[in-house]
Nucleic acid binder design. Structure first.
Length: 444
RNA sequence: CGGGGCGUGGCGCAGCCUGGUAGCGCGCCUGCUUUGGGAGCAGGAGGUCACUGGUUCGAACCCAGUCGCCCCGACCA
């Protein structure tokens, strides 16, 4: 992609409404624009990141044996009345009427819709277990939206719902999602810590939040440092093996203190965690999983026949990841004073290609050749071909934060070499194009 | 919803107290010069001063109301 042709409205100064770092950087880097309070327009660069996160989340959901569907944003109030939540949910739910004066709502979550769907399509225990998810926009009319996309009113969420015959089987579904979440966040380049949580209005009796460490996070957290050193991705998981999955969950939940301010107990923390392993800081909630039994299946009639021919309500759980929130959360966790430092898996482009002397024949030729070579290798590159000063280009590249910066300049164009540097390192190296390509493909 | 603050070219701000031709920096356009960390000079474009009403010869400025946005708090993926 040529920078000169891209739609990338960056800002030199920070709009005054933006207070926290991720919001400032997202506005400056031309990722989003605010439309109205808590509601954002996603621009190409921001959308690329969100799509990558969604794809990665999707991949891990599928790997754990879930099936993707897509439920509507607009739901019927009747369904919510039937489940008994219409009145309970309160003003956070956006209620609307259609032209026939029927009560509708913009879904803040989807337990009702999916439980109803399930009730109408599955009738036998032989079709269980089932894990169904979608990635869809939600609306919650927050009292106070803030922190940019981290607490918007409209947000993109992945929500998965499990259906099982017995509480034990449901626990396995819960465990599968637990492990899948560990993998998902690790692949996104984040250290996520599972913490025991309150179940809140979703209901139920078993729940964990997944928190990533960020100094600007909303929640105060206390945990055992050794949780941060666990290597999740090297674990080979067989999701069909109940004992194996349960063991992984156990290894992350037992013997490790990890609490948000909701559940923090200072005496217990001091007693259970040796002083050298105590971590105290702040974090951002990026995922939340719940087991809630028959809370929705009973009122909505999601029943199946068991092996003895008895009709029993299914056991359910729900599992959420804030996809749009993650865009901001990753920036909170990955930035420096110059700008964003994207983890490669979610970077909107892998390479900032800078031609410091547009108009110089050798530079232009080498830059073109380099861009084409990168594209041919399937590497996403944003080629800054504008007639701007070198300094302006370097600053913007730092702000946008792609993993690599490749510079073509009169210093090295004649020799056909390129100066390459990682966003997070200070040292650059000057190498021939072929070698640069090899370094990039081997490293990522 | 309680408390605080703010609405003036795309962005950041001054002007308001003390009413009298709407200003600055950045960005944008044109030209020349420059060229490895947000270049210089010259010229230029761009604004119903959030909205409505009032006071006044005259309102960005004073008064009243409305709307919008941000921050702190209670609540949340």
């Amino acid at each position: 992609m040529r920078r000169s042709r891209y739609y990338l409205p960056t800002l030199r100064e920070t709009p005054k409404e933006a207070e926290i770092i991720s919001h400032r950087l997202m506005l400056r880097a031309g990722m989003v624009r605010q439309s109205t309070a808590g509601i954002y327009i996603w621009l190409p660069l921001g959308l690329r990141v969100m799509d990558k996160i969604a794809d990665l989340v999707r991949d891990e959901q599928n790997r754990a044996g879930s099936h993707e569907i897509l439920m509507p944003t607009i739901q019927s109030a009747d369904l919510w009345r039937k489940a008994g939540r219409y009145d309970d949910y309160g003003p956070e739910m956006l209620r609307i009427k259609d032209r026939q004066d029927r009560d509708l709502l913009y879904g803040p979550t989807n337990e009702e819709v999916i439980t109803d769907l399930f009730a109408n399509t599955v009738t036998s225990y032989r079709d269980l277990p089932q894990l169904l998810y979608h990635i869809q926009w939600k609306f919650r009319d927050e009292l106070r939206p803030r922190f940019g996309v981290m607490r918007g009113r409209e947000f993109l969420m992945k929500d998965n719902y499990s259906f099982d015959l017995t509480p034990e089987a449901s626990r396995h579904s819960y465990n599968k999602m637990f492990v899948s979440y560990l993998r998902t966040f690790a692949r996104l380049g984040l250290q996520a810590i599972p913490m025991e949580a309150e179940t809140g209005p979703i209901g139920g009796n078993l729940s964990h939040e997944f928190i990533i460490i960020a100094s600007t996070g909303e929640s105060a957290i206390w945990c055992d440092k050794s949780l941060l050193e666990r290597d999740v991705l090297s674990l080979a998981v067989n999701y069909d093996n109940e004992a194996e999955v349960a063991e992984i969950v156990r290894s992350f939940t037992e013997g490790y203190y990890a609490c948000t301010d909701e559940k923090h107990n200072p005496e217990l923390f001091a007693k259970e965690v040796p002083e050298t392993r105590r971590y105290q800081g702040r974090g951002i909630e990026v995922g939340h999983i719940f087991h809630f039994g028959t809370k929705y299946s009973e009122p909505l009639g999601a029943m199946v026949s068991d092996a003895n021919g008895n009709r029993v309500p299914v056991q359910m759980g729900s599992y959420g990841i804030g996809v749009s929130r993650l865009v901001g959360a990753i920036i909170e966790a990955c930035h420096d004073e110059k700008g964003i430092c994207w983890p490669a898996p979610v970077a909107p482009f892998q390479v900032s290609l800078i031609n410091v002397r547009v108009g110089n024949t050798a530079c232009d030729a080498l830059a073109e050749k380099t861009m084409q070579a990168l594209q041919a290798a399937g590497v996403e590159v944003l080629y800054d071909d504008r007639d701007e000063s070198a300094g302006a280009k370097f600053s913007e590249a730092d702000l946008l934060g792609f993993p690599w910066r490749w510079v073509v300049s009169p210093r090295n164009a004649d020799s056909g070499t390129i100066e390459i540097k990682r966003r997070t390192e200070d040292e650059a190296q000057v190498v021939p194009l072929e070698q640069a390509l090899a370094l990039l493909t081997n490293s990522s």
